[in-house]
Design a protein around this nucleic acid. Structure first.
Length: 229
DNA sequence: TGCCAGGCCGGGT
DNA sequence: ACCCGGCATGGC
């Protein structure tokens, strides 16, 4: 009985999450996300954007580009303190310089600087490897895997959780992996769809979840929600 | 002006 | 196994 009720809840949330995608896509159209022209740039941006507004990340990326340091190889060869200096606009710059260096070190150490080899590694092995790098947590790892590696693994961020909490699909206790599974069970594995979905959630949050007054023309307004969450 | 932003780590319980 | 302070810039 308990199992049956759990299953029903799972199916309900899966249905809602599929409906959300259809609705958001109809409202906002394709997002073609993540910002970044190259895989290197996407990976670097994934570290820089940790707990930081993207406008500040963009400034840091501009700096790196100006110094011809917007590649993993360049960062690998760069002095950490100089790197820190250039990425200052992104905030927590000493921490992020250390994390970028740790990531590219891992990348050269295990894959000899070959991104194709990185992303040819099975997800079940690659994700834990990425998570073992200091400074790479679940969101950063999934953003790299999905947007740079084109690997179907769902990215969960603060926006995603807030939206799901507002619609009572999760509670405040829900962990990262749990939320991730909800999306991956609702949608068949497709990197393009996962990427668009995450981007659509960000678009929604930025336009409609700033204050309770933003709910009026929100595409998801017809679903039960609590804007105070 | 103070608070927040697309996290994550490390030390303390 | 949690909890929490620290990291730091620019925008509102």
């Amino acid at each position: 009985m308990r199992a049956a009720r759990t299953m029903t809840a799972t199916n309900d949330s899966s249905r809602v999450l599929r409906e959300f995608y259809t609705t958001l896509f109809a409202a906002f159209g394709p997002q073609y996300w993540w910002p970044g022209e190259t895989r290197d740039e996407i990976i670097i941006g994934a570290i820089l954007t940790q707990n930081t507004a993207w406008t500040n990340v963009a400034r840091a990326i501009t700096q790196l580009r100006k110094h011809e340091a917007l590649t993993l190889r360049a960062i690998h060869e760069l002095d950490e303190s100089r790197l820190a200096d250039w990425i200052k606009p992104a905030g927590t710059y000493r921490v992020k310089a250390r994390r970028l260096k740790a990531l590219v070190h891992w990348f050269y150490d295990h894959f000899d600087g070959d991104l194709d080899r990185v992303f040819a590694t099975p997800l079940a092995k690659l994700r834990p490897m990425l998570l073992s790098v200091s400074g790479v947590g679940p969101e950063t790892a999934d953003a790299i895997l999905l947007y740079a590696g084109d690997i179907p693994t769902f990215v969960v961020d603060a926006y995603t959780r807030r939206i799901l909490r507002r619609h009572d699909i999760i509670d405040g206790e829900a962990g990262y992996e749990h939320v991730k599974r909800l999306f991956e069970h609702a949608n068949s594995p497709d990197a393009h769809v996962y990427g668009e979905y995450h981007a659509l959630l960000v678009a929604l949050a930025k336009r409609h979840c700033k204050s309770t007054a933003d709910c009026d023309d929100c595409p998801l307004r017809d679903w039960p929600h609590d804007a105070s969450k």
